[in-house]
Nucleic acid binder design. Sequence first.
RNA 1: GCACCCUUAGCUCAGUUGGUUAGAGCGUUCGAUUCACAUUCGAAAGGUCUCAGGUUCGAAUCCUGAAGGGUGCACCA
Length: 734
Amino acid sequence: MEQEREPSKAPAPFLSPYNPLETEQKILQLWESADYANPDTMVAKGLTKTDAETYSIVLPPPNVTGTLHMGHAAMLAIEDILIRYNRMLGKRTLWVPGTDSAAIATQAKVEDEMYKKEKKTRHDIGRDELLKRIEVFTEESKATIINQVKKMGSSLDWSRYAYTMDETRYKAVMEAFVRMYEAGLIYRGRRIVNWDPKLQTTVSDDEIEYKEQKDPFYYFKYGPFVIGTVRPETKFGDKYVVMHPDDARYAEFAHGQQIDLEWINGPITATVIKDEAADMETGSGVMTITPSHSGIDFEIASRHGLDIEQVIDERGILLPIAGEFAGQHIKKARPMIVEKLKAKGLIEKIDENYVHNVSTNSRGGGVIEPQIKLQWFIGVDKEFSIPHSEMTGIATGSKTTLKKMMRQAVESGDVKIAPERFERVYYHWTEILRDWCISRQIWFGHRIPAWYRDDETYVGTQAPEGEGWVQDPDVLDTWFSSGLWTFSTLGWPEKTDDLKTYHPTSVLETGYDILFFWVARMVLMSGFLTGQVPFKDVYLHGLVRDGQGRKMSKSLGNIIDPLDMISKYGADATRLSLIIGAQPGNDLKLDENRVRGYKNFANKVWNITRFVLENTDGTEASLNAADEKLLAEAMELAAAVSDNIGKFRLDLAADLVYHYVWHRFADEIIEESKTVLKGTDEASLASRRSVLYRILNIFLRLLHPFMPFVTEAIWQELPVKDTDQLMVAKWPRA
RNA sequence: GCACCCUUAGCUCAGUUGGUUAGAGCGUUCGAUUCACAUUCGAAAGGUCUCAGGUUCGAAUCCUGAAGGGUGCACCA
């Protein structure tokens, strides 16, 4: 009968089953009060040697306005594992938290809501008022995301928290801009850029997302030629007709030859241009060009010194060059233009099912209209002499370009990318990289530190003296400040101790989808501004998808919310489900059943501990041969786990411990121990009790980086231990 | 168009430099249980390792080619 059962010898906290929700709350407080995530505390308390090897990671800052999603959760789990592991190895370990202002996305969100609620646009309320509203909004959501990050058990040093728009980071951004300007790497120029008519701003090449779309493809009679287009509305300014110099079909036409022909709004004179950009295989091999609204056309026009005329304005409205169509929006005008051409008998044929890619702004969705605009750029091919360099193969003062420097940083091995295949992707990207347009026509962000007065331009960290200066209204691309992240978070441009101690950082861990946006830009910025690579290793994780391999999205309704998982199964289980089965660089399919499975594992560990503590009080004893073997086996496991973590195979490392704990220790060693412990030989009993306790002690440490909560909770109840918290215990090493 | 990734049990995936009979988890079926744990334990069924060639004493693994799925880049007159 229940009442007659002997009272359990195990400590009272080992209630069954394990309750992650309650435990995790308590453990979070425990960690926070000890402040061991702060390396200064570790050094002050003598837990880390002052001259210990350093290990540092900067957290890829989540957007202030966002909420935690599974991608964040995976990132936090991976980085926390690396951090906890290295901290336990005795390294001086720092993980810097931060949030990102995400300029375009944030402003768009605030503007959207304002328009929905009040039917107002930013122009109705003005710059200052908009920025105020954005600040209110970001302050609110900042707290949300920070709180969620903490729930994952992330051992970040919050005393070093950074926000891309805080004062220190603002100073860094200004300083970076000015230095690059003075080196001639930042320039202002009139060039063709990606213009988003919806958000009224430029976007960089990398932010463009191509979407497939079906549109009619028109073939027009253009004098003696046939030209094709999906965009008749751009054709008003077309007065050059381009063909390949070797195209035999058009040998009779000479470069520069003028031809009179009938066009949309009457007779025009077209000029023949021979250029190798014209593909003989495509269509008729002849094309007209619209230099103002097409990158390639712009290049051709620049090559031959041709006139460049704007046809469409910033809002997508046709300009006076369109004659009777001027003032119309391109969308409305297109069918009318086609009608007119039809009436004039200038249509050769129409292909109704032409499938092509339309470029859109991935940060908000407008269809991109290339425009020629006066913007700020970073020149990636511009030669400069590097003011200071610690990078392999690049001497201080030597001449290089940003592009060459970015390539060299990886080629030299200063930066290693894992999985390795992404190195090739990185090289390819640097090869095709064009000058980076960094000015954005929005209001929220780091304002460009340039002032104009008549024909003068002043660039500096402070406004210039004197009357009449007007600051550039634009702000910087959000990736500009992100590029500084590894060193701006450590206090650059001040020569801080943190910078000296923790930069270059050890690892940059992020999703492969922002290799170009971010990783490459960090190498660029860090190389020029600090003379160092930003990190020694790049570890790229895959995307988290749903159980069927689909992207998680609101419209599919297949989003698995990490906070939901945490409250149902615990953060430990959520972490494991994002680690085991996730190969580096490959997408992970997440199924709720797996999370549930790992909750059971946490419970298993809990019960194993109860068994061990019911049978031993942690007293050391000399081990017999059989038990020595068991101990050696656990140490072999430790070595294998270390080896896999070192290779970024966290998935294999976690799986190894999981398997050992459940199927070796619990299923075999404990079962066998039940028999052994019934014996009468005191030495054997003591040996077995001791080895059970010692192995428990080993695998709790091995498990800690992966499941910090349950292991820490158990540690708190151990009768014999060498540190007050497991998170600062020593990693088992032979 | 170019490049890369994936294809192993019903599902998700291990399988590291080629080496006995290809493994795990989940699921399924059968059974157990006063025992640290029903959030458990034991067992079973389940495989043409996508296909076709090749190298080799030996191939899931290496090479060539093909198919299907996915991603990136480019093109987009």
